[in-house]
Write a protein that binds this DNA or RNA. Structure first.
Length: 262
DNA sequence: ATGGTAGACTTTCTA
């Protein structure tokens, strides 16, 4: 079978339930992973999404911050949630499809403004989150697993609008990229988006603060789709829905897609 | 060197 998966930091699932519905209706991914739902699970508009065919869901939520959810047209069962940096935040949930493929939905900490763990506790927590992911997925190498989400790091020079100007900006500092790559390599994860689209600038996020996001195009690729090494060759048709950044009352992130023949 | 916008829920935090 072929299934299509999308990941999107929605920045409030309740405020943007109409945009979620639009992606469900127009793009029809089989599985849609959301981050930053900013809602307790019981206040997520589950009925609306079920009415569009997304009858299966798993979620972790908290009031006002964080929150992750997976909506699926395909049957799936929850297979747990981790608190990688032991912050008590809703930043991970996982589910397994009937074909045995497990999907991890991750929202990594943003890390604050100052890229120094002595001066900024949040930056240390971000690095620790990736260290914990490295330890977790390095202990038992994932098989038939997919990891998606807002990882809040743009690892490559062509994942940001200016490598040089962002070297000291949280999301693109060398120490973050080291932690990100160590976590990826420990799990044997393949960056599906970049395996599919190896060259050229790719962005999935544009700041709300920049005027004229489209013309300035000062974006970063913060949202990722990884596949375990055994199934990476089954991935194809990666794309980023840039148009969504121009919708009315948009999220600052846009959906990232990949399809898998499994 | 600084401020810019957005969301939740507060009179401020987080991104």
């Amino acid at each position: 079978m072929t299934f299509t998966l999308a990941t999107w930091n929605i920045n409030s699932v309740r405020l943007r339930e109409g945009l979620v519905a639009r992606v469900m209706e127009e793009e029809t991914p089989d599985v849609l992973c959301l981050q930053e739902c900013k809602s307790p699970v019981e206040k997520i508009p589950l009925e609306i999404f079920a009415g569009l065919g997304y009858r299966h869901w798993v979620a972790r939520g908290q009031k006002g911050y964080n929150g992750v959810a997976i909506f699926s047209k395909l049957p799936m069962e929850e297979v747990g949630a981790h608190d990688f940096a032991r912050l008590g935040h809703a930043r991970h949930v996982a589910a397994r499809l009937e074909n045995g493929v497990t999907i991890h939905n991750v929202y990594a900490p943003a890390g604050g403004d100052v890229p120094d763990r002595e001066a900024n506790v949040k930056f240390g927590q971000k690095l620790d989150f990736f260290t914990h992911m490295r330890e977790h997925f390095g202990a038992e190498r994932p098989r038939r697993e997919i990891l998606v989400g807002d990882l809040n790091i743009a690892p490559r020079e062509d994942d940001v609008w200016s490598h040089k100007q962002l070297l000291k900006v949280v999301s693109h500092t060398p120490i973050e990229v080291e932690h990100f790559e160590a976590a990826r390599e420990a799990g044997g994860w393949v960056d599906v988006t970049r395996a599919d689209i190896p060259r050229g600038n790719l962005y999935s996020w544009w700041s709300y603060r920049a005027p004229d996001w489209n013309a300035a195009d000062k974006g970063r690729r913060l949202d990722h789709i990884w596949a375990s090494g055994d199934i990476a060759a089954a991935a194809h048709s990666s794309r980023i829905l840039r148009d969504a950044r121009g919708w009315e009352k948009p999220s600052d992130h846009v959906p990232v897609f990949a399809s898998f023949d499994l």
